[in-house]
Design a protein around this nucleic acid. Structure first.
Lengths: 203, 203
DNA sequence: CCATAACGAGAACGGATAGAGAACTACCTA
DNA sequence: TAGGTAGTTCTCTATCCGTTCTCGTTATGG
């Protein structure tokens, strides 16, 4: 991978494309890029874009296709499916599915980090609006901020979906159900497996 | 699949057809499309529509059937997207969005009947796990079974999302919030606009 | 001081896109 | 039959857009 560094201007063009790619109805033309970045010369902009093409960051402008579009993210953007890895019920390991099927997940219910889907079993988070049989979208992550709802593995055995509150020397896992008590563990017993980023329900 | 991308003008025509396909009494003629998009020449519009036909997005204008209508397979391609029509808050009309944007909706969160998406404002259904800012998928329907959660229009003015219980001579709309009282109306004051079939939440 | 690179302006060319308008056909209706 | 509506095809023209080129400016480093 030729890590040919970009010049300032090339980087600026690339940044602009990445930041605004979701707001485009159509990929911007060279003139539009000029206007957006304060240039007056199409030819100059063309030179920058051409450099980005050769760096593999931008799709080649094959004569017919007008407009400047990014190369890679297209496929990821088209990929709206995440694996349904299993069921999560408080107090038991995640019940894995042998052949994880793919579930459609709207892009706004996930992050651009790796994610997967679990189906909730139980009522321990009912007061947070997470009901039995809901699907939850989990971002794969091994840390969390206090207040986030996480998939936590306790003693390497039991998996549970709870709101987390980490303090020096102890970790509290808070159910959202008045009938249940908060659970307190020493940090080494709790392993965070992911963080809730989206949720779906079918009626 | 010929991935021949549309030109801007073609896209504009296509967008117009998609956005207004539900509001047409009859499929629009070329002249009507011209007027809607600010053109003066039928011939020019015909060229754009013809391009959409060849792209497989619009039904061929085979002499007899007048008007420009979307191709049937397209509807299935669009099946993952539904229009976000506005916000629903108890006690106010649905606050419509000027340009309804399309929201990705997984197929298992909707039915095969016409559906649309609203964003919830308020806490009146909190105990049913429907929180502020949740997206709800609504099947367009003017009737409901008791126990279903419906979008109801009261006196033609106020829209609300509530669980419904219909008895002879009266309709009860039940919030899922201990702080709120059930509402009872005579049947002619309540108009059902749709039924909840899916729900999404982003964290 | 010169060489080099990054950058920008602008001109010029060719192909693609777009719009206007005219002429034609097909069909329905009065 | 006449007239209106709607789709089709055509030509002509203007504009847009990518491409390539030259030229001038600025900054950096040996």
């Amino acid at each position: 991978m030729a890590e040919s560094l970009l010049t300032r201007r090339q980087q600026a063009v690339y940044d602009y494309l990445r930041q605004h790619q979701h707001t485009f109805t159509h990929p911007p033309t060279l003139d539009e890029l000029c206007h957006a970045l304060g240039l007056n010369s199409r030819g100059s902009m063309h030179k920058h874009v051409q450099a980005l093409v050769e760096a593999g960051l931008v799709a080649p402008l094959d004569g017919k296709q007008r407009g400047v579009r990014l190369q890679e993210p297209v496929r990821e953007q088209m990929e709206h499916q995440l694996p349904l890895l299993g069921y999560i019920a408080a107090g038991r390991p995640i019940e894995a599915i042998e052949n994880p099927e793919d579930v459609h997940v709207p892009p706004n219910l996930r992050t651009d980090k790796p994610c997967y889907v679990l189906q909730v079993k139980g009522d321990s988070m009912i007061e947070a609006g997470i009901l039995n049989d809901d699907w939850v979208v989990i971002e794969k992550r091994d840390y969390a901020r206090n207040g986030e709802i996480v998939v936590a593995l306790i003693d390497g055995e039991e998996a549970t979906l709870k709101r987390i509150n980490q303090r020096p020397g102890e970790v509290m896992l808070l159910p959202a159900n008045s009938a249940m008590e908060p659970m307190v563990y020493s940090p080494e017993r709790v392993q965070i497996q992911g963080v809730l980023v989206g949720q779906m329900r079918s009626y």
